[in-house]
Write a protein that binds this DNA or RNA. Structure first.
Length: 255
DNA sequence: AAGAGTACCAACCGCTCTTTC
DNA sequence: TGAAAGAGCGGTTGGTACTCT
């Protein structure tokens, strides 16, 4: 499932991550944050490039990363967004809390692309029939039954946006309390691509607060017990200074 | 049972964008 | 203002698991 581990010419390890590496990275970031991806592996005691650490954290170790099967709702959202945005996986990830851009991209290529294509060809076929004045309602119902409700896509409006209405079928499913997402009908899809503001119920801002918070020490961790306290630079913000990080490296247990 | 083909997903690569100096 | 560094994004690859014949 994963690439074989190897070491590149710079002595950087590549390939599959071991549980030990995961634990080092997780422990380090949870405690100190990711102040600089390039420097981070050095202080975390990892023989990985910063990029690799970032990817591993973002796609796998980050808290709230949702794994496992996609729900019907999630798939519908992805298909809709792909129609609107194209391959803007990171924006899509912002609309699907817990899903990563990599994950969404993979799911699109392995599952949804085919379905979207099928829908498109069915739509084209239907349009051809209608244009010829030979619409066949009975056949259309038959076709819809074949494709399934989840496969149907709404028509874009004149501006090319989708005015979403609640799915015709399985409304109970869509509005199920156990659902992680609001029903499509309640979503404001006016994507503001200028500033990337999310209008989703669970806003990107909420979701990203973890990433935008100032560099804060874990309160459960007694900084003073290991080294002198960082300079308090303002409300909730600590200025550790450049000399701070090498001390952290020594403090992280090396395995 | 075994080989071939396909699906899945973690990870890498290279490019672009943003920030800093 | 331009160069360098860092971060992020999207495309692609590698390798295992699963399914089919």
């Amino acid at each position: 499932m994963v690439r074989a581990a190897r070491v590149d010419e710079n002595g950087m390890k590549k390939g599959a991550w071991t549980p030990e590496e995961d634990e080092k990275l997780r422990a380090y970031i949870q405690r100190y944050g990711h102040w600089n991806w390039r420097q981070l592996p050095k202080f975390a005691g990892l023989s990985r490039c910063g990029k690799s650490c970032r990817l591993r954290w973002m796609n796998y170790l980050r808290p709230n990363v949702k794994r496992g099967a996609y729900t019907k709702e999630e798939e519908e959202i992805i298909i809709e967004l792909h129609q609107q945005l194209g391959n803007k996986w990171s924006i899509m990830a912002g609309k699907l809390p817990g899903r990563t851009d990599n994950d969404i991209k993979d799911h699109w290529h392995t599952n949804l692309k085919k379905r979207a294509r099928r829908n498109q060809s069915a739509k084209t076929k239907e349009e051809t029939i209608n244009a010829a004045g030979q619409a066949q309602p009975a056949r259309k119902r038959e076709q819809e039954a074949e494709e399934g409700a989840a496969d149907r896509l709404p028509e874009p409006n004149s501006e090319g946006f989708f005015a979403l209405s609640p799915p015709e079928a399985s409304s109970s499913e869509i509005t199920s309390p156990s659902s992680d997402y609001p029903p499509l009908s309640e979503l404001n899809w006016a994507l503001d691509l200028e500033d990337g503001i999310s209008s989703f119920g669970i806003s990107a801002q909420d979701n990203d607060s973890f990433w935008t918070q100032p560099f804060l020490p874990d309160t459960s961790y007694n900084v003073n017990s290991v080294f002198s306290p960082p300079f308090f630079a303002g409300e909730g913000i600590y200025d550790y200074g450049m000399d701070f990080f090498p001390q952290l490296a020594e403090e992280i247990p090396q395995q």
